[in-house]
Amino acid sequence: MSDEDYVYDEDTGEWMSTSDLAARRAAADRIEVRDAVGNLLSDGDQVTLIKDLDVKGAGQTLKRGTLIKSIRLTGDAQEIDCRFDGIKGLVLRAEFARKR
């Protein structure tokens, strides 16, 4: 028998160890970002645009098929932070990107 503390989790109605409860809560806090076809995205992935996008403030259009390298995930489930030549602080919606 281990000396680990057990607590009652009101969400599941079960007794569980404190380490299991902490791991479950950490996993629940993590946000999954999925692209237009449902692939799971992570930091550093490359994505391809599936639609022509007008970039506000830059006066330019990113064409369909443009490759965006090294994306970063934000705290939002639908936003991707990335960098493109000539455009700083570009934030894309995940619904307009497909994982490469």
Rank of each mutant, 00 (worst) to 15 (best):
G86Y: 13
S19M: 02
A23W: 01
D45Y: 06
R25P: 00
L62R: 04
E95F: 14
G44Q: 06
S42M: 08
D35I: 04
K56N: 12
G89V: 04
R30C: 01
D85M: 08
A22H: 10
N39T: 03
V91K: 11
E79M: 09
V37C: 05
D54C: 00
G38C: 07
D85G: 13
E95I: 09
M16L: 15
A27N: 08
L90C: 06
L62V: 02
A23N: 08
R98W: 03
G38R: 12
A36N: 11
A77W: 14
R25E: 01
G75M: 13
V91R: 06
F84N: 00
R98C: 11
I50W: 03
A36E: 10
I68N: 03
D81F: 09
L21T: 03
R83K: 09
D20W: 03
G86Q: 03
A26R: 04
L90I: 04
L41C: 07
A22V: 10
K56G: 10
G89K: 06
A97S: 11
A22W: 06
G57T: 12
N39Q: 09
A36L: 05
A36W: 07
D54S: 08
I31A: 08
G75S: 13
K69M: 12
V55D: 02
R98E: 12
G13E: 08
D45F: 06
T18R: 08
R72E: 11
G57V: 02
D43W: 09
I68R: 04
G75W: 07
N39R: 14
L67A: 14
E79Q: 14
Q46L: 00
K63P: 03
K51P: 02
K56M: 10
K51A: 05
E79L: 15
A28V: 05
A26H: 04
G86D: 05
N39M: 05
R83D: 10
G38I: 10
G75I: 06
N39S: 12
K69T: 11
G86T: 05
K69V: 13
G44M: 11
W15R: 13
A58H: 10
A28W: 01
D54N: 12
Q46P: 06
E32I: 12
L49Y: 08
R64Q: 11
L49R: 09
M16I: 01
D43E: 13
D35V: 09
E32W: 00
E32R: 01
T12P: 04
R93G: 15
K51L: 01
Q60A: 05
R83W: 02
G75P: 05
R24I: 07
T18S: 07
G86V: 04
I71G: 07
G44I: 04
L92A: 02
L73K: 12
T12W: 07
T12S: 15
T18V: 15
I50E: 02
F96T: 02
R25H: 01
T61R: 05
V91T: 14
D20N: 10
A27G: 09
F96G: 02
A26N: 07
D45C: 12
R30Y: 04
V91L: 05
V47N: 11
A23M: 02
R98Y: 05
R93T: 11
D76K: 14
T74S: 15
S42Q: 13
S19L: 05
A94P: 01
